[in-house]
Amino acid sequence: MAFLVNNIRRCVCLKSFSTPNLVQTTSYHANVIDHYENPRNVGSLDKKDKNVGTGLVGAPACGDVMKLQIRVDDQGKIIDAKFKTFGCGSAIASSSLATEWVKGKTVDEALKLKNTDIAKELSLPPVKLHCSMLAEDAIKAALSDYRIKQQSGEKK
């Protein structure tokens, strides 16, 4: 993760260079930096485990990729969550926060998680909203992957 710190200023998300001649002075909010420097739940879960749902999403406008995985127990509660993100500080912070928030929630509760909540918690500026959107999509993709796995398991 250490080398990612060097990248914090490099996320030239495509939105931000539509304003030429403006020196970018926007700095990250303390919450973003906290999640960025001490990301929670980085890692992977066993993709083949039927209790694990994997969401893999990307942002073509940013070149960010995000993998978010959840482990669900038999009661439908999310007991573990891991993520791995290659992208800017906001994308890393969004996915880190997302894993923290889904832990302990049921699958249905997790579905209700909105990108606006993530953006609010991290005080993301408008040009970075899509980073939180990516995290929401990653959760949705992981939940849907889990559902599909469970349904195909029942059929067998």
């Binding site: 893999l56 999403v57 990307g58 942002a59 073509p60 406008a61 990729v65 290659f86 899509h130 990516l134």
Partner: peptide, 16 residues
Amino acid sequence: IPEKTEVDQEFLMKIM
């Protein structure tokens, strides 16, 4: 370039 989320799993796996 649209801001929508990319979901092509095979491609994303490669990038990851």
